[in-house]
Design a protein around this nucleic acid. Structure first.
Length: 464
RNA sequence: GGCUGAGUGGCAGAGUGGUUAUGCAGCGGAUUGCAAAUCCGUUUAUGCCGGUUCGAUUCCGACCUCAGCCUCCA
């Protein structure tokens, strides 16, 4: 029985999809005016793990993640780069696709772009105006916050606590709390025809319109980072509640913030974001994913390069166990049950991860002993790692890959043939009792990032 | 100031009203020609003060501290 914390109701709820086994989930993606940072990865990895687990649990998931390709930031960035907004968007989308693919994320079933859904947004705005929840004003259209008695229910905030200051639009609003659904065209900015003249959509309306278009008026889960809870999600709810008859998203899930280990949130405004592609250059993608799985998705999480390097060492441990186990084997149901029990408890990936490590220890304990048991455990470990897209590489290949460990960088100075030749030479020296020579060779290899592992069956090697 | 969440061992980070999270690091032992890997063991861990309870890290209250949000943010 899957239970999910609904951040709208504030409690754990037993999950029951609208139309099982189908399941619709909408996640707020990024505004494509810059490269992805690690904070995006945190949220996206969380939802990747969640979607993968839901599929593993038998649901037919329709995973929609939007792309915001028109807003103030887009326009400002395009202006600064002196490139058209659409070109900037496509450039950043290509980079995002590359980064997220490298990270090993499953592609969403749909990635709707705001600029591709202008008609749907205009349609919803017209409905809101007809229902007297919105009004045109000087080429803009505003949502009337006080027309929605439930406004503030998501962020648990009273209207009195909101003190917006926006001198630009203040005069055109009837109430300072109102927010823009449509913004009148300004010179040099992208604009579309609308019943209110040329202009462009406000930020929040795109998610209301696109989620309805792709998932319907009512759907199962809406997710995003906590920093979107207010105002973005609050406004989305207001728009959809007032503009559509459906109940909109039934469960809201918010991922916690990622903070640099110096204590500050990684934030675009603070300029301390860590670019995802840089992280992926320094560490194996699986290590980054495994690291991000280490904390519950709702908890704030600290990040540093050293912590990811730690996760990489943990990943080597998992692959080391897989390598040690005999092939074959069948998945052990009781271990899968353990895994499911913790994942069913609001997707506790931290506990799920500890199941993986526990399996690794069991494998290592059995190795050399009960081969059948070790094979079964390894099959289980690979099966459960696979739920997250992890541990699917050949262990030997993974461990021999440069930089799979500490992330200390690309050290490819020796090819495999060189390494094998030196190992053969060392084996000869050892058999003759020339340990000084043997150790010299080992030190030489170590200096180039190659670690030797002697055993009764011979000498293995891997890169550190 | 308001709202939300959090304070766990050297670091990161889960769970739990009484019993091992897990990972990384350290230390000791086993193993090894020596290592590495691995296994076993190990280091006064639950912010502070009260309360409820046979018993609280876990529940309740106050306090302190921190983080996020309060119309740029995953």
């Amino acid at each position: 029985m899957l239970r999910i914390f609904n951040s709208h109701s504030g409690v754990l709820e037993t999950f029951a999809p609208l139309d099982p086994p189908k399941l619709g989930i909408y996640v707020c993606g990024i505004t494509v005016y810059d490269r992805c940072h690690l904070g995006h990865a945190r949220s996206f990895v969380a939802f990747d793990a969640i979607v993968r687990y839901l599929r593993f649990s038998g649901y037919q998931v329709n995973y929609v993640r939007n792309i915001t390709d028109i807003d103030d930031k887009m326009i400002a960035a395009a202006l600064q780069n002196t490139e058209p907004v659409a070109e900037l968007a496509q450039r950043m989308i290509d980079l995002m696709d590359r980064d997220l693919h490298r990270l090993g994320l499953a592609a969403p079933d749909a990635e709707p772009r705001a600029t591709g859904h202008i008609a749907q947004m205009i349609d919803m705005i017209e409905r809101l105006i007809a229902a007297a929840h919105a009004y045109p004003s000087g080429g803009d259209v505003y949502f009337s916050v006080r027309s929605d008695p439930e406004y503030g229910s998501l962020s648990r905030r009273g209207l009195d606590a909101m003190q917006p200051e926006d001198p630009d639009t203040e005069r055109r609003k009837r109430d300072p709390l109102d927010f823009a659904l449509w913004k009148a065209e300004k010179p040099g900015e992208p604009a579309w025809d609308s019943p209110w003249g040329r202009g462009r959509p406000g930020w929040h309306i795109e998610c209301s319109a696109m989620s309805e278009h792709h998932l319907g008026e009512s759907f199962d889960i809406h997710g995003g980072g906590v920093d979107l809870k207010f105002p973005h999600h609050e406004n989305e709810i207001a728009q959809s509640r007032c503009g559509s008859p459906g109940e909109f998203a039934r469960i809201w899930m918010h991922t916690g913030p990622l903070q640099a280990s110096d204590g500050e949130k990684m934030s675009k405004s603070l300029g301390n974001q860590t670019v995802l592609s840089d992280v992926l250059d320094a560490h194996p993608a699986e290590a980054v994913y495994l690291f991000l799985l280490g904390a519950h998705y709702r908890s704030p999480m600290e990040y540093s390069d050293a912590l990811i390097a730690e996760a990489a060492r943990g990943l080597r441990r998992l692959y080391g166990a897989l390598r040690a186990a005999p092939p074959g084997g069948s998945v052990i149901d009781s271990e899968v049950e353990r895994f499911r029990t913790v994942m069913d408890d609001d997707f506790n990936t931290a506990e799920a991860r500890s199941v993986l490590f526990d399996l690794a220890r069991q494998i290592n304990r059995e190795s050399g002993g009960a081969a059948r048991r070790a094979a079964d455990l390894a099959a289980t470990l690979r099966h459960l790692g696979g739920v997250f897209g992890l541990l699917q590489a050949d262990p030997e290949d993974f461990l021999r890959r440069s930089g799979s460990g500490s992330g200390s960088g690309a050290r490819e100075s020796l090819n495999e043939a060189d390494i094998e030749a030196l190992i053969a030479e060392r084996t000869g020296a050892r058999s003759e009792g020339d340990f000084a020579r043997a150790d010299a060779i080992r030190d030489q290899l170590a200096a180039q990032g190659v670690v030797l592992l002697d055993s009764a069956e011979g000498t293995r090697w891997e890169r550190s």
